[in-house]
């Protein structure tokens, strides 16, 4: 039930952002109807769970984002420098990252964070490892991955946090 409520609130907020017509009662009620319908459809499709409706946990992700973006900016500059240098020196590597967060959701945040930082792409996400392709060998440092994984776990609220 909680998922349904938070999903419909999020969808109603989405409608308000999209619509921009707050004076029309008709459109507002249609918006309410649309968000309820989307929740109904999600229920019908059996996808009404914390993965579809993680909106009650989003605030913790906001704490993770600034750090992630700092990483993204740093790696972006490195990659662009490599791309624009006259002779591109590449040292591609494939590595297995074994230290993963426990929950699926945190793992997915971890995998997407790896992909989001240019220079590393998560190639495969398995039950016990992520295979990562890195374009420069400096980017395959085990400790860096471990640090990021720990932050992802924290961002999803693992280890002694609420939820």
């Amino acid at each position: 039930m909680g998922y349904a409520v938070s999903l419909s609130l999020a969808m109603a907020a989405l409608w308000l952002v999209l619509s921009g017509h707050y004076d029309s009662t008709l459109l507002l009620s249609i918006g309410a109807g649309a968000s309820v319908f989307s929740v109904f459809l999600a229920w019908r499709l059996h996808i009404l769970d914390e993965e579809t409706s993680p909106y009650h946990k989003v605030w913790r992700l906001f704490l993770y984002w600034p750090w992630l973006w700092w990483e993204v900016i740093k790696t972006n500059i490195t990659i662009v420098r490599t791309i624009l240098s006259p002779d591109m020196v590449l040292t591609p590597r494939m590595v297995r990252v074994k230290e993963l967060p426990r929950t699926d959701m945190a793992r997915i945040i971890f995998a997407n964070s790896i992909t989001l930082t240019p220079g590393t792409v998560s190639v495969d996400l398995d039950d016990d490892e992520i295979i990562v392709h890195a374009v420069l060998k400096e980017m395959t440092n085990k400790n860096d991955f471990a640090a990021m994984g720990a932050r992802c776990a924290k961002a999803w609220g693992e280890k002694g946090s609420l939820s």
């Binding site: 998922y3 059996h46 996808i47 769970d49 914390e50």
Partner: peptide, 10 residues
Amino acid sequence: RMNRNRGAGS
């Protein structure tokens, strides 16, 4: 696969 704890919200 479907998530294991499917349909939790209803």
